[in-house]
Amino acid sequence: MNAAASPQQIENVSTFPPPPPFYKLYLNYDSDIDSTATTSATTDPSTSSTLSEQQSIPNIILPLQPPIPPKQGSNYNQFGQTYSTVDVLPTLDELDMVQLYPKGDIEPISELKKLNRSILFNYLQLLETLIENPSDFKTKVDDISLLFINFHHLLNSYRPHQARETLLSIMTEQIKNRTQSNQLLKKSLETCKESLIQTFNNLNNETEEKEKLSPTLATTTKEQPSTPQTINKNEELVKPTNWLDQLVNELSKIEKPQ
């Protein structure tokens, strides 16, 4: 190892390197060391119960409070790099690049097509240069590189536009799903109403037939008190067919909710 190596280099080649400096971010390091020391001093390792160990663990590994989110317009560090909260795409001028497409309002599709064809044309020119004068390749390679950078930049500048468009398509899809669910639910409700009415009609017919066959049975059915709650409200329930009328009334109420 070189004697003049910096501490950072020494750290990198160490067999047992120290933990990275950011490990202190995840614990109340100073207070935790104190609590660990207190715990080890007060408890005898041979007689310490499992319960007391479990109780002391949460105090030791208590994490720090997360940092407050950065304010709008400020910068923050993440994995050693500085980021801004305002997400702005730098212009090509700011990146010291030549902008090949016009500034201001442009027709993106035609500009992108122009760039695509220019790339192809410049590639052919590069091949020609490599045949005729191979030493001059650098200029053409730089041109192609600039064309690619412009292409990517123009595409990136339309990412917010695409995000809005994606949101539009998601919302359209959601509305479509809701309408479909609504229609399906209404259809099921209609089927349910029809089945219910049909069932009660059948029951009503049966009761009438029985009435005709044995009048005593009909009289007894009149006496029974256990009718649905909604039907109990009606005083005309003594008639055996009244519950069906009541049900139909209830159904008509459901059809036009207020």
Binding site: N182, L185, K186, S188, L189, C192, K193, L196, T199, F200, L203, S226, T227, P228, Q229, T230, I231, W243, L247, E250, L251, I254, P257
Partner: peptide
């Protein structure tokens, strides 16, 4: 429609009980 469906469910339950 959901509230209508809930009402319908109640009605069906009552009808079943009655039957």
């Amino acid at each position: 429609t959901k509230s209508e469906a809930i009402e319908m469910l109640k009605l069906v339950k009552e009808s079943i009980r009655y039957i």
